[in-house]
Each structure stands twice: as C-alpha cells, then as structure tokens.
Design a protein around this nucleic acid. Structure first.
Lengths: 216, 216
DNA sequence: ATAATAGTGTCTCTAAGACAGTATGCT
DNA sequence: AGCATACTGTCTTAGAGACACTATTAT
C-alpha cells in the first residue's frame, strides 16, 4: 500500500488488473514470494518492479495478514500487507509490470470496489498511517528531502483530513526534539514569503505525540 | 501468545515440544489452519484445545506475520501471531494437547532460547501488549470480573516493569471515562482496608492515554 | 498492636487550545 | 496593488509529576 500526497490529495498506487479474477478492477500492487526471500524483501522487490522505486530507501512497515478462506477465488491465498510512504514522485514511469499503474485518490478508492478484499487492506493501512503520524516522525516521508513547515502541515491535514492551526503546529514541530533539522536555506521562486527549509531530523518517535483528537 | 499475570509476575503459556524439530524446547502454542477456517478462528480454536479456554471470550489481536525462509527447518512455514490476554486462571488443567503446557515468566523465556523464532514473536507480542496498556482499557483483561484499583495498578506495574504512583494512578483511572464501572461492592476477607470493587467499563480506548514515559 | 491495603488533596509544570496581526516574497 | 505564504506571541486550560498522611480491615 504505497501512499503519497499529490495535488493536495492523498493518493494510493493501484493497478488495473489485466487478468482474471477481478479483471479490469483496480487492485493494490503485489506479488508472490520467491524462494529464499524474506517477506519484506518481497514487498521491496514488488515495489521496485512496479514503480522503479528503490524499496530499501522507502519507509516500509508490515500492517497485517489477510488469509481468510474465500478472499481469493483461486484458493487460499495468504496476503501480507505492507505500508509504504513516498514523497511526490515523478509521474509513475514505472518498471516492467507497471503499464497499468497509477495514482488514485484514497477516498475514491475506498468508496468504489477494489479487487479481492483490497478495500479492507487499504483501509487498515490508511489507519496505520494516520496513527503513525501521531506517534512518529514519519510524516517527513511524504515530503521531499527538504521541505517547509507549511509542506509538513499540509501532509498532516491531507492524511488526517482535518485542518490544523498553523501557529500551534509550528510551535509543536519546532519544539519536538529531532523532528526537523534546519538547513539554513530558504525556499525561493514561489509566491509568498520564503519559508525556511528543513530536512528530517534523527528522531523516529515523536514525543510528546501529536494527537489527532487535539488538533482541530 | 497468551499472557497473564500470576504470582506477581507476567507469564506466558508455553508448551514443551514432544517431537522434532526443537524437541524438548519450549514453544508458543499454535497449530495449523484448517480448511474453511479463518485465521482468527484458528487462533481461538488452538487456544481452546490447549487451555480449555473459550477463545471467543478472550481478548485476541493479530500482531504480525513471520514467514522468512529458514525459520522452520521443515520448510517455509507462515506463522500469524495473535496476542491473547487472560486473567489469573485456574491452574492449566488444559485440553487434549495440553499435557506439556504451563505458565512461564516472560523475562526468563526471553532470556532462554525458545523453539523456532518464538523469542522474537514473544517479544513483539509483549511490546504490543505494553503499548495497548497505554492506549486502550485492555489492562482489565488481566483482571478477574471484579477487581480493585490496586489490582489494576499491579497489572500496569508488572506488564510495564515499572512502579507507578498510586495517587496519580487512581486519579487517572477514575477520571478516564468508561474505564471502570463501580459495582458498589467492596472486597472483604483480605488484609487491609477493603477496596472498592469495579468491573470493566464500556470504553475500549483510553483517553487521554496513560503513557509509559510519564508514569515513573 | 501491627501489618497491609485503600483512600484523600495540593502545588507545580508541561504542553495543548484558541486566537490576530505583521513580514516578505511573487505576479 | 494584491495575493500568497511565512512567521511571531499571549492567555487559558487540561492533565501529568511529585509528594504525605489518614482510614479501615485482618492477623
């Protein structure tokens, strides 16, 4: 479940299936484990094959297992889902299998029917991502290498689907130790006052947490 | 991974393996999925077979998947781990498969070698349980149907391995809406002033959370 | 009497919540 | 000039952290 923020929307990488079952339906990217390959390596490899992205550079986290009978008409298929987060990438040029891959709005995808039980998988991964934004510094994985506090705030707003007070947000992320590292640079060339550019800091967990309930 | 609090220690249900591989080693209880059975049903059924407990009455939560090659010498076995929490049960009388089942201290079990990669599975489940205590009301699952605030505090202290200020703890759990429901009864027959008996309230999530970092 | 557990109250401090105006660049 | 974004600061309030003593029972 590869998520990104693009055009002000939360998007997920989906592929149109070219073969039965669920031919023509949108589905999450994925594939089968190979011999002597760990499952996280599988996730990383499939991501690379379908997007050209170096999976080892991306945030990748196991979310859950989906193995109930009947979820795949071909038999009992065990699916292990991984959440991946990417910055706004160059258009999905893609790898060998990626002819049909594209970015779709998460909200739309949850409303329409995906192949298999992929709405459930997407929904679980989305909830995981939202929760990770509260407790970790992973929001920076949605951003480019350098970014402004405004960029980061937009990530929170878009992923959570709420609006955030910019003054409180700024205070919060600046005082959170190790969240942001000042580059000394500013962003020019765009309308508005140039913003200070940061890169992600060393901290992985966000303390204190930024709770959704509190930010309204 | 069935956890309980017993004799003031955090314990886990382990079985001594009677057959290779890892014959004689301690292992987490488990078994194989049957046809037309969901994986949570499998967890529930295995728990029943090995402890006689009605799995549908217990807290049961999926933790993760372990499927890397080499983790089981018999081939690539995919293990889905579930965390279960039980109150202090009558001695493990047990079901058909339970001849070798028993309660072991979690700390010891993590220090010694278990079969397969079961230390990792246990460690992950333990961390999940500790985290759930922060954010949910699941600590009550370690208690009997009615319990005192002292009982509940002991759960936190034992599972987290820290000591907690009883005054702050009391204030916290009483003010947390829906955590505890007063039964009106008091516990008699034990030394000390009789404590008010509570049962678990309707709330599943604990708001605000009880963060480990804060309770020292 | 003593031991053991339950229960009560206050001060401090951190950090979130609400809120408006100024600064600096682009077009 | 107008627009867009960045930045600054204060008051209030919720809730955690630290801390000591009294109350009620069993033995």
């Amino acid at each position: 479940v590869l998520l990104t923020v693009r055009d002000g929307k939360l998007k997920v990488l989906l592929m149109k299936r070219g073969t039965p079952p669920f031919e023509g339906r949108k589905a999450l990217p994925g594939g089968f484990v190979e011999e002597d390959e760990s499952i996280v390596e599988t996730a990383s490899r499939e991501l690379f094959e379908e997007t050209g992205l170096d999976g080892s550079q991306l945030y990748l986290e196991q979310v859950g297992v989906y193995a109930d009978p009947g979820r795949d008409p071909r038999g009992r298929i065990v699916t292990v889902s991984y959440l991946a987060i990417a910055p706004n990438l160059p258009p999905p040029q893609a790898g060998p299998e990626a002819t049909s891959a594209g970015w779709y709005e998460v909200d739309d995808s949850l409303a329409h029917e995906l192949a298999f039980d992929h709405e459930v998988i997407l929904s679980d991964a989305l909830e995981r991502a939202r929760s990770r934004l509260e407790h970790t510094t992973i929001a920076t994985a949605f951003c480019d290498e350098v970014f402004t506090i405004g960029d980061l705030q937009r990530v929170y707003e878009i992923v959570w689907g709420v609006s955030v007070d910019s003054r409180n947000f700024r205070r919060k992320v600046i005082s959170a130790d190790g969240f942001l590292e000042d580059t000394g640079d500013k962003r020019n060339g765009v309308p508005g006052r140039p913003g200070t550019l940061y890169r992600k800091g060393a901290a992985k967990i966000l303390h204190p947490a930024m709770l959704r309930s509190r930010m309204l």
